[in-house]
């Protein structure tokens, strides 16, 4: 791992070199990323409800301490199309489920479908909120320069950067998609069944838009010599204190431990 010396170059404006402050905001971006990775893995790998609920609790507590609960709320809202479709699909179509809640004509929602759907949603929320919290408390540039300083390849940095930067664009786009479909008479204020039908008209353009955006971003970066050989210049190098390093390594260790325990069948 090569570490490029801090480059507080003379003549750069003050805000370029100024360090962020505030709880969690001031923690090293790499550390926050490691913690988020641990949370994501725990949410998906620890079986049953323990994993996702524990992670959700930790993420929400951290967000509350960092005063970022509102932001997380917006992110949670943006996942509703996906959450809705996961719930519906599991509720009605979970293979092998045979404990119907009720009969609605040809449809038979099942308890196990509902249960499994809710659990999947909990994992998904844990995932998006853990990543979302990093986004809300980290300037993207800081995250990327921290990763670059650690010698992470540009392509990997791009993947992280694109994923993180997509969040606000996706929220904005989702808002306009909802407006466009409502203008075509889609009922978002009426009864639940009418609203459930709106999942596809909303999720389709959101997903497609996200894909095109990544593609365009890639091409725009290439056009600005993203792959050119030679080291990139870093303008500001984020702080990395001993405590940050300790948390980071602990998170990485815990992550590996969970994966190993799961692989050897000792996590149930």
């Amino acid at each position: 791992m090569t570490v490029v010396p801090a480059a507080a170059e003379p003549g750069l404006p003050d805000y370029v070199a100024r360090q962020p402050s505030g709880f969690y905001r001031s923690i090293n971006p790499g550390t926050k990323l490691a913690v988020a990775a641990l949370e994501v893995v725990a949410a998906f790998v620890v079986p049953g409800w323990v994993g996702p609920l524990l992670v959700l609790a930790v993420v929400l507590a951290t967000a509350a301490a960092a005063r970022r609960l509102r932001g997380l709320g917006t992110i949670a809202l943006a996942t509703t199309p996906i959450v809705g479709s996961i719930l519906l699909i599991n509720l009605f179509l979970l293979p092998g489920a045979s404990d119907p809640i009720a009969r609605l004509g040809p449809l038979a929602p099942t308890w196990s479908g509902l249960w499994f759907g809710l659990q999947t949603v909990a994992r998904l929320m844990a995932f998006s909120l853990a990543i979302g919290l990093v986004y809300l408390t980290t300037a993207v540039d800081d995250l990327l320069s921290d990763l670059a300083r650690r010698g992470l390849g540009r392509r990997a940095i791009f993947v992280v950067g694109a994923a993180v930067q997509m969040v606000p664009a996706t929220i904005e786009r989702a808002g306009e998609i909802v407006e466009a479909q409502r203008s075509r008479g889609m009922d978002t204020e009426g009864r639940i069944w009418r609203r459930a039908r709106g999942v596809l008209p909303l999720a389709g353009p959101v997903v497609f838009g996200a894909l095109t955006e990544v593609e365009e971003r890639t091409m725009a970066l290439e056009a600005r010599a993203f792959s050119a050989p030679g080291r990139q210049t870093l303008l500001r190098v984020p702080a990395d204190r001993a405590a940050h390093r300790a948390i980071r390594w602990a998170a990485v260790f815990a992550l590996v431990a969970i994966v190993v325990l799961r692989a050897t069948g000792r996590l149930g």
Binding site: E176, I177, A180, F208
Partner: peptide
């Protein structure tokens, strides 16, 4: 109301 950007409605 037809919006400006078609990709924000076609599904």
């Amino acid at each position: 109301l037809a919006f400006q950007n078609p990709d924000r409605q076609l599904f």
